[in-house]
Every structure is written in C-alpha cells, then in structure tokens.
C-alpha cells in the first residue's frame, strides 16, 4: 500500500536521511522516499504488518508533525 504524508516544512536536508533511516527500521515498510522540496514522505508498506497510524506516530516521535495523508 502506498501513502503520502504531508509534513510541516522540512528545512534541513539532513532530515531526509533521518526520516528515511527511521522508516527503514520499521517492520512492514517496503520502501520510502522523503520529498524535501514539498515536505512530503512517500511510504510503501505492507498493511498486514504495519498500520498507517503507527507510521504517522513514528514520524511524529522523530519530531515532525504530519499535517495530512493521502
């Protein structure tokens, strides 16, 4: 399943690596991409292993507010 999360403005490019690195450690996340310029995160994950809510919570824990998802 593919989801795109809109975050609040990401200003430091190192945030990209941070978020991507975190997502990589999550079980069920198959791939992820942080789109720096539009402050979005695209995540491809297996619904049976991980929920979208958990992904959101993990991103939030890292210090980034998730504004919306689609």
């Amino acid at each position: 399943m593919n989801k795109t999360y809109q975050l609040e403005t990401i200003s430091c490019p190192s945030c990209i690596k941070k978020i991507e690195g975190m997502l990589k450690t999550l079980d069920g996340v198959e791939s992820s991409e942080v789109l720096f310029n539009s402050s979005r995160v695209k995540v491809n994950f297996d619904e049976s292993t991980i929920s979208s809510a958990l992904i959101k919570a993990k991103i939030h824990q890292l210090g980034y507010n998730v504004l919306s998802e689609k």
Binding site: C12, S14, C15, K17, K18, G21, M22, K24, T25, Q61, L62, G63
Partner: peptide, 12 residues
Amino acid sequence: KAWSALRYKIIG
C-alpha cells in the same frame, strides 16, 4: 532531535 535520530543510527 539528535537523540531520536541516533536511536535509528543516523548522525544528523
């Protein structure tokens, strides 16, 4: 922020 990133082994 540094700490939360370090937990995922990322030096930001």
